[in-house]
Amino acid sequence: MMVRMAATRDGYGDALLELGGNQRVVVLEADLGKSTKSLHFRKQFPQRTISCGIGEQNMFLVGAGLAASGYIPFASTFAIFTERGFEQMRNGIARPNLAVHVCGSHGGTHTGTDGSSAQSIEDLAIYRTLPNVTVLHPCDDVSTKILTKQLVHLNSPSYTRTARNKSPVLYDGREDEIEIGKGVIHRDGNDAAIIACGILVSEALQAAQELSLEGIEVTVIDMHTIKPLDEALVLDVAKKCGKIVTAEDHSIIGGLGGAVSEYLIENYPVPMKRIGVADRFGESGESEEMLNLLGLSAPFIAEAVRKLLNS
């Protein structure tokens, strides 16, 4: 069967367009609307699209001012450039709890040939430290679209990471299962659990298939919401499987692996392995090359499971 391929940033663009009927929704751009896909909204709703030029710090706080006056701003740029406005996000958005929704596209090493300066591998970690901020990293265009549309009801700020390049679509026909804060089980098994997000969910599913041929059955979870973490689900699979691998196209420090291990260490410690970028920067390369170079692709995830089972 041919798997449909799509980029999560397109899901974001489609969601904004569908949200356009809501007169309170405004879109903020920093000269990357063509890339983040807010351009579709701009075309339909130019009056409610605000160009901030190449000025991310200003963009975030313009969003704060709009939110404080009852609007629902969606501001996007590359994930890496959102980081320039981190203190604005911290002091101007998270602290007063203003519902500004930031989307960082082109996240992770998967963004590829632009090289290390464009590959944000710390965004999930830094935004996760901020009180009031919901952190999302969906794995396909369908879930990105649905999660983005759910943000208008959140009444608090958020950060969503999307990716530049296409990846397998996993949620066609499963739209009803997507809800902010709820992890989704994509495969069931008792030997170990792989908790993944973003681009590595499909890699985790491939790893699970490979392991199954060896008689190893693993649970695979799409943890699209990094914060608030679906702690009940993490606890369930920790009890059921006893061994956990996390997988993310992000630094092993502070992201999904950090969130899961922080929770488990205090509640139900089990042997774990974190798949992620091992405290280094990326470099130029195609998406698949990056995942292999940095040890993030399916074979590495499968090997991590084997090692855990043999330890």
Partner: peptide
């Protein structure tokens, strides 16, 4: 108090958002 301040250089951007909101309204 309309704006939670404390870190310099932020208020003008927030004010710009407030002014845009007024115009949209």
């Amino acid at each position: 108090v309309d704006f939670s301040a404390g870190s310099l250089g932020m208020g003008l951007s927030f004010g710009m958002g407030s002014a845009l909101a007024a115009r949209l309204d």
